[in-house]
Design a protein around this nucleic acid. Structure first.
Lengths: 140, 140
DNA sequence: CACACAATGAGACCAAGTATCAATACCCCG
DNA sequence: CGGGGTATTGATACTTGGTCTCATTGTGTG
């Protein structure tokens, strides 16, 4: 569950405090994406005494470790997705919020082509795919 | 200059008001990306009496027409880019903010592959490329 | 097991954007 | 060309997502 998050944090040299364990558990319990507001609501619902700031701070830490990533939904909202630290992209189900990760599959060719045409040196990119997961597709 | 923006708005059936003309001129005068705050600052610097809300409203309208697009910079900030209404992606220079547009160049293969692997139906995607434009690359 | 220092929570603050509403200004129609 | 319905406007309050500060607390190292 949340063990993996905690283990990675530990390895990164950050302290494993009570609030962090609790927030990690909340994240692990969710599936698919969530917003910071979701976590804040979860935390206050359970009367964990963790502050807003602590939640944002942990999200930053997790993002630095690549254990969580920020995605910008098509409607402009921000969400976070728990994920593997390796480079990859996300497929987001617009109906239920489920997430799939896809390894790099041909994007390099695209960036190389764009670089050739424009003369830019490309340093990084962001690719997000939005659609419907198998469940939501058949359910509708 | 700003004529093209105004013409497109006219065709979309929106009224061509004074404030809209002024904001369109401000947008046309910038090159590369800009934030809403930039426009608001421009407007107040010149003592045009246009309100914050009007600027956001015009940006929304322009975005609907595809004349402007919102990009999320790697540092998390939001910017707007003036652009062609056809489907395309942006290359953003992280040094000077210059923008290049690239037509679809192989992305479809990537989305098809991702779809095949994940079982998702892909409805839309967002691709942003960050790097250095030819000027900034040589200047450094 | 003490102590330095990282981490916390509370709350003020900030930036970006939205909602409300009375006043204004387009522009269509005659 | 002038009137008037209606889209648009500016001011301002509000919301949401996130950061800063700072006095207090908790961790884990030595």
């Amino acid at each position: 569950m949340s063990d993996e998050l905690l283990r990675s944090l530990d390895q990164a040299g950050v302290r494993l405090t009570g609030p962090r364990r609790e927030i990690a558990a909340l994240i692990a319990k969710r599936n698919g994406h969530f917003t910071a507001a979701d976590l804040i609501a979860d935390a206050s619902k359970r009367r964990l005494g963790v502050g807003r700031a602590t939640i944002f701070r942990l999200l930053d830490l997790l993002a630095e470790q690549g254990l969580v990533e920020r995605v910008d939904l098509p409607d402009g909202r921000h969400a976070y997705v728990p994920c593997e630290p390796s480079h990859h992209h996300h497929l987001v189900c617009v109906a239920c919020g489920a997430i799939a990760e896809v390894e790099d599959c041909g994007i390099d060719a695209v960036t190389a082509e764009a670089s050739r045409r424009s003369g830019f040196t490309i340093e990084s990119h962001r690719l997000e795919l939005f659609g419907r997961c198998p469940n939501c597709r058949s359910a509708n």
